[in-house]
Design a protein around this nucleic acid. Structure first.
Lengths: 243, 243
DNA sequence: TTATGAGAATTCATATAGGAATTGTGTTCA
DNA sequence: TGAACACAATTCCTATATGAATTCTCATAA
């Protein structure tokens, strides 16, 4: 049995947090094929826990849209995002995030410019030193950068709705390959500038541009696949995607 | 939220759907006081099922923001919305719903004018005949009306994010008293007109006005309570709130 | 060769039980 | 009188077992 030293505070639901982290990582890494069924008994035995916490984790993963439940058939991993789903996701982001950037670009303590700058220098350093998984670092930076702005907007409902989309999680799952994030970081810097200068209009527009560009970069990976997705031929190309 | 078929329908998770409906109703009706702890054993015995489905239901209700989990302390019902939370919720709606109304006001088959009109005549009839619970009918109408527009917008991500807020569910919980919904229905009719005429600008503005007005009506209930909410003196007034 | 049907095996959903932590209560001491 | 400690009771979290439904396999017949 793995160490019970769970990241969950106060040891409540120790098994659950371990199992959750393990299963989430398995799905994101693609160790469980997209669309494949998940055998509760097999998972519980392989992780050395009973079925009860595994079932609870599956329900949580259902909330993350990483698994789906079919009545009478149990749980399966969700298929990867197709182009319409990606478009819907980014349209949602285009609705929420420019609004958040505008709300954050105020001359108040809530202004997140300092935190954003710290985040940017951290990722710049991390990119220079080629240690570790550059791709994972970049996704983590991207996640924190956007989350920080959402948090600064000061609306818990919007923040929660955004978090629930798990957009970075799903895009990570789409493209488990190497990334060159220079463009992303440059756009982030532009957004930070506008927020630091307390220019709501510019912040809103910079964020909107960033999201439009980001979608275009992701959508490029679908080029040529047109409506052939049912071919199930291995999916979109997987190298040198730029977030 | 994909409400599990509460009827047998595939028999999968029969106990869970019953327990879910029962507990949700209990919380909404206030039979369980807001902020009170929930005893899993007591619930399971009173409903005649084991603890397993009760635990699953509680996790689901946590997703609905109707209960919260404290590590080591189990589940409690969430406190009622206070004024800042209500404001956050309506700011989210003000961000999403006018956008949805604009998106729905197109000359396409997706235009929901017919469904909206059917919904409006149904509630008008229901209001005339004083049979049944007028308040519950009105909330149900309001829910369906807004859901229909969100659906017509054609973005599953936005629709899901909106559904996850369970805004009608929480406002229902806030004001379990009688309602006079004439104003609400009139505003709905205005929104429908703009959508039926395929006037995106007018639809967007009509929806925005409706949400601003609706918030003002709800916020009125907090008048006088200022920052005295810790008094825990029974909450806001509960009669003649107009959605 | 293909389709069908019965039986076996797997898998899910729920029930029940036990260990561990927390909460409440009563007593004792300052 | 108030506070602190210890013990008991409650409550949660996980494990294991069982019944029911589905899926898989294989043999048989058209």
């Amino acid at each position: 049995m793995p160490t019970r030293q769970s990241s969950d505070a106060s040891k409540g639901k120790a098994a659950v947090s371990d199992v959750y982290a393990s299963m989430r990582a398995s799905i994101l890494k693609g160790e469980i094929a997209p669309g494949a069924r998940i055998n509760i008994d097999a998972v519980s035995r392989s992780l050395g826990v009973s079925q009860t916490p595994v079932r609870e984790v599956l329900q949580r993963l259902e909330g993350d849209n990483l698994v789906v439940y079919s009545p009478g058939r149990g749980y399966s991993t969700t298929p990867l995002l197709d182009l319409p789903a990606l478009r819907s996701l980014f349209e949602f982001r285009l609705l929420v995030e420019p609004w958040a950037a505008r709300s954050a670009a105020v001359d108040r303590l809530a202004n997140p410019a300092a935190a954003l700058e710290k985040e940017l220098s951290a990722i710049r350093n991390s990119m220079k030193t080629t240690s570790g998984d550059a791709r994972q670092d970049l996704v983590a930076h991207d996640t924190r950068f956007h989350d920080t702005i959402l948090l600064a907007a000061g609306n818990p409902v919007v923040q929660h709705a955004y978090a629930q989309t798990h957009c970075h999680l799903h895009t990570f799952r789409l493209y488990p390959a190497d990334i060159d994030g220079a463009i992303t970081i440059a756009e982030h810097a532009t957004v930070r500038e506008a927020i630091a200068s307390c220019l709501p209009d510019r912040a809103e527009e910079a964020m909107a541009q960033h999201i439009r560009n980001s979608f275009a970069r992701f959508a490029k990976a679908f080029e040529g696949t047109a409506d052939l997705s049912p071919l199930e031929n291995g999916g979109p190309p997987r190298r040198h995607i730029v977030t």
